[in-house]
Computed example of a mutant assay.
Amino acid sequence: MDTLIIEAFARALAVGTPLLLACLGAIVNERAGVVNLGVEGLMAVGALAAFAVAASAPDANLWLAVGAAMAAGAGLSALHALATVTLRANQFVSGLALALIGTGAAGLLGKRFEGLPLFNKVPDWSLGGFALSPFTAAALLLAAGLAFWLAATRSGLTLRSVGENPAAADVLGVNVGLVRTLAVLGGGALAGLAGAFLALAYRSSWADNMTAGLGWIAVALVIFVGWRPLRAVAGALFFGLLYYLQFRLQGNSPIPTEVFSAMPFVLVLVVLALAGLRGQAGDAPAALGRPYVRGER
Rank of each mutant, 00 (worst) to 15 (best):
I27W: 02
A218L: 06
A262I: 10
G110R: 01
V122E: 00
T84E: 07
G195S: 03
V233E: 01
L62M: 03
A287V: 03
G129E: 06
A12P: 01
S261P: 09
A183Q: 02
A32T: 01
G33M: 07
G95I: 02
D170K: 01
V233D: 06
T257C: 09
S204R: 12
N36C: 08
A143Q: 05
S56R: 11
N29G: 07
A218I: 06
N209V: 02
G186A: 10
R180D: 08
L200I: 04
A151Q: 11
A191F: 04
R294Q: 10
G295W: 03
L108P: 03
A194L: 05
V93L: 13
G128M: 08
Q91L: 00
A52G: 09
L87G: 02
S253V: 10
L116T: 14
F224A: 10
P166D: 01
G173S: 06
V271I: 13
T3H: 15
T136F: 14
V171R: 13
V39T: 14
V266D: 05
A218N: 03
E258A: 14
Q250L: 09
G41L: 01
A212F: 04
V174S: 04
G279R: 08
A189W: 01
P291E: 13
L241F: 15
S126M: 14
L190W: 06
S155R: 13
G163L: 08
A44D: 03
A281I: 07
A286M: 07
A131V: 07
A144Y: 04
A189K: 02
A83P: 02
V271F: 12
R278P: 00
F130Y: 14
H80P: 07
L178H: 10
L245Q: 07
L87Q: 09
L100V: 14
L267Y: 08
L182P: 05
T84C: 15
Q91A: 06
G73W: 05
L13T: 11
G110K: 00
F265P: 04
L272A: 08
N252R: 15
D208C: 04
F148G: 08
V222C: 02
R160C: 10
V171N: 14
L245E: 08
M1P: 15
P18V: 04
T153Y: 06
V171M: 13
G110M: 00
G145I: 09
D208I: 14
N175Y: 11
M70R: 01
P134A: 01
V45A: 02
L146G: 07
